[in-house]
Structures are given as C-alpha cells and as structure tokens.
Design a protein around this nucleic acid. Sequence first.
DNA 1: GTTGAGCGTT
Length: 268
Amino acid sequence: MSHFGRSGPPDIRDTFSLLVLNISFRTTADDLFPLFDRYGKVVDVFIPRDRRTGDSRGFAFVRYKYAEEAQKAIDRLDGRNVDGRNIMVQFAKYGPNAEPIRKGRIIEEAEKSQERSRSRSPRPRHRDDNRDRERRRRSRSRSRERHGCDRDRDYRRHSRSRSQSQSLSPEYKDRRGGRDDDKHRSKSRSRSKSKSRSRSRSRSRSYHSASPNRRSASPSKRPTPHRSPTDNGSPEKQTNGKGSPPSRSASPLPHRAGSRSSGSDGKE
DNA sequence: GTTGAGCGTT
C-alpha cells in the first residue's frame, strides 16, 4: 500500500531528495522503498505520474532524512537493475516548487541568509543550473508528445523562437534534430502523396519504424549480398549459371531453375 | 502488451 504521497509531501524541511531515473513504468513507490530504506531512513518516496493516464513517468523521488544515507544510497543503488531497468540515482537538483536545491536538500531562506551572514559562498555555482531549469520545462512537454500532443510541438516549430533556438545547447539540437528530421521528412513525403494518410499520422509517430538490424524488410533489396549460393537453399542455381547475377534474390522465380523442375514437380 | 529523455504531488 502506498502510504506515501497520501497528503502531499510530509516534511521536506530537513530531507534530502534523490532523483531516481530510468525506472520501469511498472515500478511503484512500494518497490523502491525497501530498496532505498535499507541504506537509510527514507522519509518519502514519490513517483510522478501522468495526469491523464496515471502511469509513472519513469522516474521517482526518494527523500532521505540524512545526506550521508542518501549519498550511500546513490553509491549503492545507482546503476542497479530494478524491475529490468538500470536505474540512475542522483541528488535532485530542483525542489517540488521548482526551486533549486543544493545537495538534494531544499534551500531555505534561513539557511541562505545564514550562509551569507557567516561567509559569502565561495562556490560561484555553475550557470548550467539556469539552463537546466529551462530545459526541464521544455522537456516536460516532450514527455507528453507520445500521448498525442505533437500538435503543440509542430505549432512551436512554426513559431521558431528566434535566436533561442540556436541559443540552446548544440547537443540538444543535434539529438533532437536527428529524430525530428527523420519524422519531418516522413511527414513531408506523406503530404506529397496527399493520400489518405491523414489518419495514419498518429501511427507514423513510431520512434523507430524499423530497427537497423531488420532493415532487410525489403525483398527487393539485397539483405544477404555475401550469402553463399549453397546456403541460399538453391544449389541448382550454382550448377545452372555459374555467372549468376547478384540480383538473384530479387527474382525468386525468374526462370525455371534447371529443366528438371519443369511443370509439376510437386512443390514442398 | 505498450515508449524511454529526464527533475515532483495532496
């Protein structure tokens, strides 16, 4: 029974939040609790779920009472295989209120003022945090794109957010560009045909329609160019034409393989 | 039966 998240966060004043990524969609808080609780006092375990479907988003938040225990859990559970998925445990960078947290602990006004009073933080902090925060907001929308909200994404593309596009890290564009370009190209092709593909647009959203390994789905192509004729299952072809063209695979029955199979040979 | 980059709720 999930006694967590019953009435929101219990008390995050002195807790250290851990972000657990890459968990299975079936993994629940009850599954994670015993795993993390063995390394320390777990105050709360929360798994964000989709508003509509209610399924988990693939990550969870585990709040520890002490930082050392949280750190130990990270060291012990990070990379652990849970429910068939390799989970990633790390300190949360942002709190529930979208506030930046340090070392998994929510920054409090009192603490901040105290730090400033005692000593000006020698650590200037990386600017990446700011960028990450923006990236986080956009990424959240991305999670919904698989649910059928691609319309919104297309709309944004048309809008073209000025220099913000290139302002984003190149790696982001590169990563997204590859897939996006592929999808866009596919869509353009469909549009060119102007066939009744409008309804299949939803289905066209498949991330990878065909695995690179299974690219041999086209019989016209040559899936096994270096395949030995003997292994091909047509030994007669070898005796028949020693200079058989490489495109033999394309024609399964171009000519009667040998004069013996002329007519009724009794197909297997 | 279901995808898989990523930071959160009553």
